[in-house]
Design a protein around this nucleic acid. Structure first.
Lengths: 148, 148
DNA sequence: TTTCGTGTAACTTTTTAAGTAACAAGAATA
DNA sequence: TATTCTTGTTACTTAAAAAGTTACACGAAA
């Protein structure tokens, strides 16, 4: 299938809202930064709103973060838009009458869960604030290279 | 998209080959354990062969592991069939003229790589032997429950 | 009251992998 | 040696999930 960019795009939206705080923040403007359609942005923002990461007002282009960027981790965003699904996919239809087919799901499932948790723990240690600050540092470095 | 079960199915194939070592091991028999088609099995076995994990002989139903199960890690299998692709997907088309769009790929890319490595390190610490032994233990436990 | 924008539904397109059909050619065997 | 089984491979179809598109009711603000 097409691979989901919801996680990346959601972090983008949140960083954008924080960085361009005082400006008009229509879904169209945000979409032009992500290079996608306004509807995709509004759909993602709907999910972020349901998960208490942003607050929006219908008809008004003024989305705001519900919490400080320090208090939003990448894991919060990931769980909001991707949910707690498998990261590595088990084949869930294997022959239960075979020694391998009848036991491999449980065995692999445990290893997959372990690997997934190792990755998600990393995301739980990165805040939106970290992302925003790093973006701003990269931007200054970029501008420095251009001027020298 | 449809989610790939190549990783799970490949481990299944390797465990099956090792456990049913002396028996006839046609792609049809293996496929019936995975509950898929023989062609899917042969395709995966082709990839496993290219990556030196198994040896096969055209026309003969006798695939064999190329190495001891102790010396095959889940990471070896993962890289063989999924490659070293992104685990978390960056949106690679963002507006380069925006502070966020112009820097987020690099910033998120680094965090994603970090999380991916945390997961893959786990897989590098699990051998096919671990998987096989755990399957056999689960099977004995299952039989014990049935007989008591 | 006009204009802009959100929220949402319905539908289409895109992408990727699995499933299916077909077949040449190697291996084993009666 | 003829038959049967099987692999390796190609080409095509189906399935599933997400992004893209169109449309529109309704809220907000000038």
């Amino acid at each position: 299938m097409r691979v989901s960019t919801r996680f990346s795009d959601s972090i983008h939206i949140l960083a954008f809202i924080d960085i361009y705080d005082q400006k008009k923040l229509s879904s169209e403007i945000i979409a032009s930064s992500i290079e996608t359609s306004p509807v995709v942005v509004r759909r993602l923002m709907g999910v972020l709103r349901e998960n208490n990461l942003i607050a929006t007002k219908k008809g008004t282009a003024e989305p705001r973060l519900s919490k400080s960027p320090k208090d939003i981790t990448l894991l919060d965003v990931y769980l909001a838009v991707e949910g707690d699904k498998q990261l590595f996919t088990l084949d869930t239809s294997t022959n239960p009458d075979c020694i391998v087919g009848g036991n491999i799901q449980k065995v692999l499932g445990a290893y997959y869960e372990d690997a997934k948790m190792a990755a998600l723990r990393k995301f739980n240690n990165i805040s939106l604030q970290d992302v925003i600050e790093t973006i701003l540092v990269e931007q200054k470095a970029k501008e420095h290279r251009i001027n020298n």
